[in-house]
Design a binder for these strands. Sequence first.
DNA 1: TTTT
DNA 2: TTTT
Lengths: 164, 164, 164, 164
Amino acid sequence: MSVNKVILVGNVGKDPEVRYFENDRAVANFPLATTERGFTTSSGQQIPERTEWHNLAVWGGLAKVVESYVKKGTQLYIEGKLRTRSWDDKDGNKRYTTEVIVENLQMLGRKSDNPSSTGQAANTGTSAAPQNQQPVSSPPQQSPTQYSNNDSNEGSPEEDDLPF
Amino acid sequence: MSVNKVILVGNVGKDPEVRYFENDRAVANFPLATTERGFTTSSGQQIPERTEWHNLAVWGGLAKVVESYVKKGTQLYIEGKLRTRSWDDKDGNKRYTTEVIVENLQMLGRKSDNPSSTGQAANTGTSAAPQNQQPVSSPPQQSPTQYSNNDSNEGSPEEDDLPF
Amino acid sequence: MSVNKVILVGNVGKDPEVRYFENDRAVANFPLATTERGFTTSSGQQIPERTEWHNLAVWGGLAKVVESYVKKGTQLYIEGKLRTRSWDDKDGNKRYTTEVIVENLQMLGRKSDNPSSTGQAANTGTSAAPQNQQPVSSPPQQSPTQYSNNDSNEGSPEEDDLPF
Amino acid sequence: MSVNKVILVGNVGKDPEVRYFENDRAVANFPLATTERGFTTSSGQQIPERTEWHNLAVWGGLAKVVESYVKKGTQLYIEGKLRTRSWDDKDGNKRYTTEVIVENLQMLGRKSDNPSSTGQAANTGTSAAPQNQQPVSSPPQQSPTQYSNNDSNEGSPEEDDLPF
DNA sequence: TTTT
DNA sequence: TTTT
């Protein structure tokens, strides 16, 4: 009945904060920046570049990957869903925060950018690609840059356990 | 350098509010609900269904389409980007609101669901479909269910003109 | 290191064919049509509407959902990945077929469009929606319109068991 | 009425071939590899890593960007749509080829990976990010790594002019 | 082969 | 505030 999907490619704004809860459950929180290029409208107006900051929350096993490999400046591809939480501020006002609950995460860039990597060169394959057809290839190995949360119980429910 | 993309399928929570500005520029604002099904975790915990509400903002020509065809209850597919705006509340606190700036919108459901439609019958093409291959077809016309904002100056810049 | 994602909203071209294998493993295959509207280029050229046909393959539990609820004409949202298979034709030429392996599927449209539905009424929640903010809602039950394959062993491996 | 969307992150398999047509219209064609990690099923079966090759076609201004900046090994994010073309082979059989018509393309990786770049460091921002809120930032510079085709007459129509 |  |  519904789809709630976010796809971001951007740079991590600061080192993730990772917190652990009962049952070894973890969350990593960090900001991710996406930047839209500036441009000139048809009417000649100059629109400057604009950076958007997204609050990411990464649960479970993925949080540990984040703890080990993601830091300020890292370029990431993430897939997730939107979640808005509410809380009461010191003045008794209802406040809202929108986060992206990350469900899939990829570290981008060449091997040499990922300290975690073995430094091996980027895969390009060597299979012949006859006349614009799709060869079915079989390649080498890969370093730890792809991760996914499919527990389906990530992110939401236990959030109520959290000291937000 | 960046990707900031949101894809939602959900139901409109109330009739859109459309506002017009100088130069016939328009915005439509309305809430869209997405609902995640409840489930039972592997440890037997019951997780209830959860509805997420998204604030949508639709600019330009798309806003007029929204004005004409979208209303409370309409099922929509939308594609857009995240935008967080800040403002100062009555207590002088900085407040943040996250919206989805809609760039592409599709009305879902059968014709009979869209009051706008003429209820006209359908179908075309008679090409054979041999062994799981993809024939290339060639068809007729279409009614108003697909719309896209590619002005590239939608949504952001003139936001500063707005009485938010 | 990689993302391979397809998102389609379209109509089912014919009733799915479902095949069962050992261990009660199932696949459903069917074509899905997406249609791009025709338009007129800036130079005045008329570009007609164009329909694209996609070969979908749905594995596992999702295949059974397809068997029960999806038929010719059904409007679907699907998420999946691209897969190109090769085979040798009668003339000894290598042939390629590209399919979309479905990982998530949603039936679109109102209840009345889904014969599977119980036609039951709806709605919940009474939370106020102050000034464009996102309330957090709390809900009931759901009918069979959302399904997902997260076995992670869907689609690919056992394909080798198949009589393609 | 329809959505036909592909999102890929992968590595370019060989240097793009760029062809020019009348009116300075260009296409770039090249293969992109995406790789799924291998895994072990719950029943203990070892599923090896698998690489999928996608045929990309990039039209118009984007093709020139590709010509200048994309080469074998480049890591790309692309967004596009599926297109299946048919042709008759030497034995008189109808053959089908599925391509991804690219509509948006991003070069990934650090500046230093993009020969086009000025070698400047990756942006991370320095704005404070109070209590998990979304600061509205104001950013630095950007190099030529984001490009989009929104002519809406890209890719399809003039394809008929082509010597495929 | 769908749907508009 | 939607929808199932």
